[in-house]
Design a protein around this nucleic acid. Sequence first.
DNA 1: GCCTTAGTCGAACGAGCGTTTTAAACGTTC
DNA 2: GAACGTTTAAAACGCTCGTTCGACTAAGGC
Lengths: 218, 218
Amino acid sequence: MAAVARNAAETRQRVIDAASALFAERGFHATTVRDIARRAGVNLAAAHYHFGSKDTLYLEVMRTQFDAVMQSLAERRARFTGGRPSRRALVELLRERVAVMLEMLLGPPPGLPGTLMLREMLDPSAALPDIVRQFVRPHKDEIGALVARLAPRLDAATVERCVFSIVGQIFFYRTQLAALPHLSDSPPMTKRWIAATAAHITSFSLGGMRAAAARSAK
Amino acid sequence: MAAVARNAAETRQRVIDAASALFAERGFHATTVRDIARRAGVNLAAAHYHFGSKDTLYLEVMRTQFDAVMQSLAERRARFTGGRPSRRALVELLRERVAVMLEMLLGPPPGLPGTLMLREMLDPSAALPDIVRQFVRPHKDEIGALVARLAPRLDAATVERCVFSIVGQIFFYRTQLAALPHLSDSPPMTKRWIAATAAHITSFSLGGMRAAAARSAK
DNA sequence: GCCTTAGTCGAACGAGCGTTTTAAACGTTC
DNA sequence: GAACGTTTAAAACGCTCGTTCGACTAAGGC
């Protein structure tokens, strides 16, 4: 039984991995269970044995994928605890968070969670509430906390708008990924490019927050 | 022949309209030609008679849809010509442009071009280059011109980054449309809400441009 | 040693898809 | 008014999809 169980777990994982890649690549409807089974190197019926249906496989893929994201996010979050950081440190934290989100959305190669989430936004499934809770909310809350500390005078509604403005700038590069080669002189998507983009977004946003504070003070 | 031709043109239009709505609503793969024919109130074969295949119908839908957008854009653009506007007028122009894009992306009801474009970005088809040329490029160039006039000291690369930052803030509300009810206290998407959002994005972006100018001056 | 159970496999099923065919209805032309 | 090309309607074709079936293998429990 041990050998079988080990193989079973491996089969399960291979199906999950293949399905993650294919769902991200082509979307739910354009992906066939046969393609998934072929890429996973398992039998067609085996996939159905483990997951029951294409729909539940999709939900399982989402759950698995965003569990992993949540975990890596939790590790990064540890840095926040500890004392009352200087403004310079807060800015640095924001810049780093922007860079992390850019990396997560654009690469390395697959940019899988970003793509799956974008697809979920266009064609919401039963997984959407979970994704929002595990993925979107934490990001929003963390950036919101940073904004609130960087601009203490802002009311809650303005903080939310600023968060949307910051996150929007980040998401833009994933949303328009396909169009960017037609739009701009090929951005190489290198580490260097990500750092430069994160730096721009950060300083642009700091200026924006200043303006928002000035506006709400009036 | 005249009566037939009139019916034929009407049939064509009805198919295009139904297909536009369904492709936006469900995406290409989840939409069936039978659904389109049913919603259009025409026979299944009629659609194939007029468009040959589902793929060419999709391309035709895209062409038609973004032709219309381009036309409405051209009308709005007329306002730009004429003299050297004051800074206050430039800001007003930017605010109005942001509001127009928000409206186009979020409503009234369908927000059709925005949805179709987002789908194209996730699953690019042969229509993507056209969409970029007719829809994305003009917006980018116009906002770029505004940015360049509002912050004359910026180099071209920084202007581009600022444009991406502005457009990103706008697109955010379309990208996260499905998640917004889970994220925020239900934004009503009314005219009033759009105006308030446009005002925030505009002032946030003006502050961001100021910061970008200060940064590039260093 | 036999039986149950978990897992895999090839084959097949029914449904729904895009597309094509067939035939009837239509206005136009002579 | 008969022949014609054009447009619509209905049925059918071929294919692929998600899913199911039954046989088979290997590993414990009694």
